[in-house]
């Protein structure tokens, strides 16, 4: 899932200065799970903005709309007819899809989108994947050293690994410590003998925004013609 955090309210208020009609967009997918932008948070933000408007005479008209998944065009149709400003509590992907679908709207980010991760416990979310486009999890016991090692080292820990923790923070586990322990459990320590060569970063960000195409899923001529007649 995509991890996001709510922006400070003061920053949001500053962004919205001069707005009139404001729609707070919540998303029931990732940002709802990480408690940054689901239905409750959209309702809360809507109430907060309305209260601020009433206290300071801003004249804002605020309402919340929460969709199932803001990153897919089919799911953001409830925004049809919306005017003015959309404060998106969906991730950066959702905000951009909404902007693309409704170019006349001013879409503003209400959250800071951070990474791809997973809940570690209640209220704690940890980055797991850096989306490098060249996965090596089969060599590292299912633990990604690109995302989870501060130096993205490919062949073992650095000298900053102490008692299973990374030198950057006592709260951060050393990914290579975890990898070695996991390989030990699996009886696959021999994998450590295998040199992982320098990574091919071309499938990563170095080529600009990535475009993934699944040719089989793309509509053929007759499907296109049928869809066009709809």
């Amino acid at each position: 899932m995509i991890i996001a955090e709510r922006k400070p309210l003061t920053e949001v208020l500053e962004m919205l200065d001069g707005s009139g009609e404001i729609t707070v967009l919540g998303c029931r997918s990732c940002t709802a799970i990480c408690l940054a932008g689901g239905e409750k948070e959209a309702k809360e933000m809507s109430e907060a903005l309305s209260l601020h408007s009433e206290l300071k005479g801003k004249g804002w008209s605020v309402r919340p709309i929460t969709v199932e998944r803001a990153c897919e065009k089919e799911f953001i149709l409830p925004l049809q007819g919306v005017k003015g400003t959309v404060l998106s509590l969906a991730c950066g992907v959702g905000a951009q899809v909404v902007q693309e679908m409704f170019p006349m709207l001013q879409v503003l980010p209400g959250v800071n989108t951070s990474n791809m991760g997973a809940p570690e416990g209640i209220g704690v979310f940890v980055e797991k994947c850096a989306g490098c486009g060249d996965c090596i999890l089969h060599l590292t016991a299912g633990i990604c050293p690109i995302a989870r090692c501060a130096k993205s080292l490919l062949n073992g820990p650095c000298g900053g690994s102490q008692n299973g923790k990374c030198e950057v923070s006592p709260d951060t586990a050393c990914a290579w410590d975890q990898i070695v322990r996991s390989l030990t459990t699996q009886g696959r320590l021999d994998l450590l003998e295998r040199n992982i060569p320098p990574k091919d970063w071309r499938p990563s960000r170095s080529g600009g925004p990535r475009r993934t195409v699944n040719v089989e899923a793309m509509p053929g001529d007759s499907q296109k013609a049928w869809r066009d007649t709809e």
Binding site: K40, K43, E44, S46, E47, A48, S50, L51, E54
Partner: peptide, 11 residues
Amino acid sequence: VERWEVLHAFR
């Protein structure tokens, strides 16, 4: 009690 409910009470 949800946060939005408290804010709503102020409104």
